[in-house]
Design a protein around this nucleic acid. Structure first.
Lengths: 133, 133
DNA sequence: TATAAAGCCTCCTGCGACTGGAAGGTCAAG
DNA sequence: CTTGACCTTCCAGTCGCAGGAGGCTTTATA
């Protein structure tokens, strides 16, 4: 199966599939003409990678997950640990963004937003609140 | 004021301050020996940039905000529009991450996480749920 | 059979927003 | 006069690809 077909079957762009080969995530066989040759297992792995990336796992996480994926003697605890760590990262990111959202919503709310120049948003950025305190 | 002092005063690393000059965000005066020379206004602007970046505004947003910052005839509506757009981006990102969190929390919860190899997390990534349906 | 189009290959560059490091100039203190 | 801190410029690397150039091979059509 050529890379174009693997692209259709896995949902990953050919560019990405080649990149994954570059970094050693999934190295396919080659035909005599040099074309990459993907088998059914390869396509499964590509779809696996797509799903894992879609869940926000880093490439290095994916490497570890792929290793577990192909390991019959794996411990489910290992997969769980990876997912758990990743979940914590996501929760931390959410908390960070919620903090930003709070500040921004407050500022947007406080700004009348007309043609006049006085703007609490720019004032906050300029640190005038501290300056006036 | 040398860059080291500006670093202390603004809270931005010297590397970042130089980078901001490279991309034309804040170009300081130079002393005769070639050293950068930051004045009080420059330090204010650096602190302004630090605050804006800390709120997650992109560099291009910061460029626009800086322009408004220095414009006596600005309309507060412009600042509000930038902040509003940014707020929407953050909310969209939060929603996306909350989706991921939901899926991951579910998977982590479903995985017993012991020495046995069967792992709902890896099964999900492998698309076995669809395969079995 | 000739040719055009599609698909494949490798290699290089760029994105955003820095960060680290090398090689070298400048300045104040001992 | 030397040491060390501080400054300069420039280059490379980060992450995860995407875009494009230039050149094969294969396939489809006239």
């Amino acid at each position: 199966m050529h890379i174009g077909a693997a692209e259709q079957a896995s949902g990953l762009p050919a560019k990405t599939i080649r990149y994954y080969e570059d970094i050693g995530l999934l190295i396919p066989a080659r035909q005599q003409n040099g074309y990459r040759d993907y088998g059914r297992t390869d396509v499964h792995k590509l779809a696996f990678l797509k799903r894992a990336r879609g869940l926000g796992f880093s490439i290095e996480d994916c490497r570890a997950l792929m290793s577990l994926y192909g390991d019959r003697n794996r411990a489910s605890a290992d997969g769980k640990a990876l997912a758990h760590t990743h979940l914590h990262r996501i929760e931390a990111k959410i908390a960070e963004l919620e903090g930003l959202r709070g500040v921004l919503a407050h500022l947007v709310d406080a700004c009348h937003g007309d043609a006049r120049p006085d703007c609490p948003i720019l004032d906050d950025l300029a640190g005038l609140l501290e300056g006036q305190a």
